[in-house]
């Protein structure tokens, strides 16, 4: 996958998990379909996907898989924890901030994916060891610390629509790829 495709895929993932209704879900899904080489499962009933999506990530019932990092990273599951502020700090290092700062936790999955998109763009634009360090930190010390637990929760949800399952798998695969890349470029400790 080339860099542009990678960016498109990340953007589609970001938009999918930030969708507010069936139409936005379906649009993001279509964009993802374009960006990936596999064929995504066909969706007949977007409303059903929307209901399932809301049960998982939006509410109003207690969420099956809250899409906020701190729920998984803090010793006790709540939003706006210390780890939420780490995301806010990383955004600041990139010169951006969430327009929903203080109302939507900064470590919402989609905001973090957005930061990844930005960070990737910055990486492509120049060759800075500091930027590389920030990238590996964000991935290894943050995203990889919570996304696997979140992914597990999504995958084990009852009656999970294939569409959400597949999109989650794509996200999982992206993370695994990035982690593999990081490991291969890193000198092993102790050398």
């Amino acid at each position: 996958m080339n860099d542009t495709q990678d960016q498109q895929q990340l953007q589609a993932l970001r938009d999918f998990f930030f969708a507010q209704n069936a139409a936005q879900l379906s649009d993001a899904y279509a964009a993802l379909d374009e960006a990936v080489s596999i064929d995504l499962p066909k969706v007949d009933d977007w409303e059903a996907v929307e209901f399932a999506f809301n049960r998982l990530f939006v509410g109003p019932k207690a969420l099956i898989a809250p899409p906020f990092a701190s729920v998984y990273l803090e010793p006790e599951p709540q939003v706006m924890g210390k780890s939420t502020l780490i995301s806010r700090q990383i955004f600041e290092m990139l010169g951006v901030q969430s327009p929903w700062q203080g109302t939507l936790p900064d470590d919402h999955l989609s905001l973090e994916l957005d930061a990844c998109i930005r960070l990737s763009a910055v990486r492509q634009a120049g060759d800075s060891p500091e930027v590389e360090d920030l990238w590996s930190y964000f991935l290894q010390a943050h995203l990889d610390q919570w996304l696997p637990s979140w992914i597990n929760r999504v995958r084990s949800a009852e009656q999970l629509p294939p569409a959400i399952h597949t999109v989650t798998d794509i996200l999982a695969a992206w993370l695994a790829d990035e982690m593999r890349d990081l490991k291969s470029t890193e000198p092993s400790i102790g050398l």
């Binding site: 955004f91 290092m93 901030q97 969430s98 957005d114 930005r118 910055v122």
Partner: peptide, 25 residues
Amino acid sequence: RRRFLQGLLATGALATMPIGLLQPM
């Protein structure tokens, strides 16, 4: 953090930032 950001600004790397959910500070 600010030093890091200033470094990025100096390289012009941020100029290529795509528009997304996060907004310029």
